[in-house]
Amino acid sequence: MGWFSWKKKEKKPVEPPSAEELWTSCSACKGMLFKEEWIKAWKVCPICGFHEKLTARERINQLVDQKSFHEFDARITVSDPLKFKDDKGSYAEKAEQTKDKTGLKEAVITGRGKITDIRVVLAVMDFNFLGGSLGSGTGEKIFRAIEYALRHRMPLLIVSASGGARMHEGIISLMQMAKTSAALARLHEAGIPYISLLTNPTTGGVSASYAMLGDLNIAEPGALVGFAGRRVIEQTIKQKLPDEFQTAEYVRDHGFLDMVVPRKELRDTLGRLFRYLQNAKVE
């Protein structure tokens, strides 16, 4: 070891982690959480059970067998067909900021991987990217993932987390609902399994297209699932809605979700479900 490196080391003593690095608080119950444990539990609060949003990368790490994930179409990104501007600036600028902030190029990551050793095609949305909104790049990536599943006869999992269609791409965003649903029609006709996992939140144009079209629709506990926003509905009907309105459990009880599955059981449950959809014979 050289003289210089020795000196360098002395200058940078290892600092104990600050309290902020060690602790965080639950965004639902505000309880103090030991960060490392909370992250290990995939961001589920040990006190109240609140399921914090996961990024698409975190979700893939949680669900997919180690080192089995191969990403598709990583270069597909936002386009700006309307040259959209609002009073705060252009959509193009906003998209660039979002890309820098999230390290993503679109609101969905697609690819193939294994879930409990079953080969699946995945499309996992990320709410941090413009509210997980469905734009043309998002739609195209999902469309391609569905077509890949169709070509290779592989089961499909779409994990939704979205406020709905992306306003900034106008009608082209709306058309992504039709586009993805058309691809799902072909998957459906080919008899290839599709499970839709709805996470907090899944609303608007995403719930009104692929998220509700699974052979099985499952959701995480407490996830907001619906079409119209609570405020819009309250203004329309001039009534207060019950607290549990549009929660996963409420939507399940009204017949639109097969099951509500806690995050820690998701991977295992998905594996078991895909096995039912793939083979009548126990291997």
Binding site: A208, G226, F227, A228, G229, V232, I233, T236, I237, Q239, L241, F245, Q246
Partner: peptide, 8 residues
Amino acid sequence: AFPGQDAE
């Protein structure tokens, strides 16, 4: 589409 409780 109608944004109402029943519709949801």
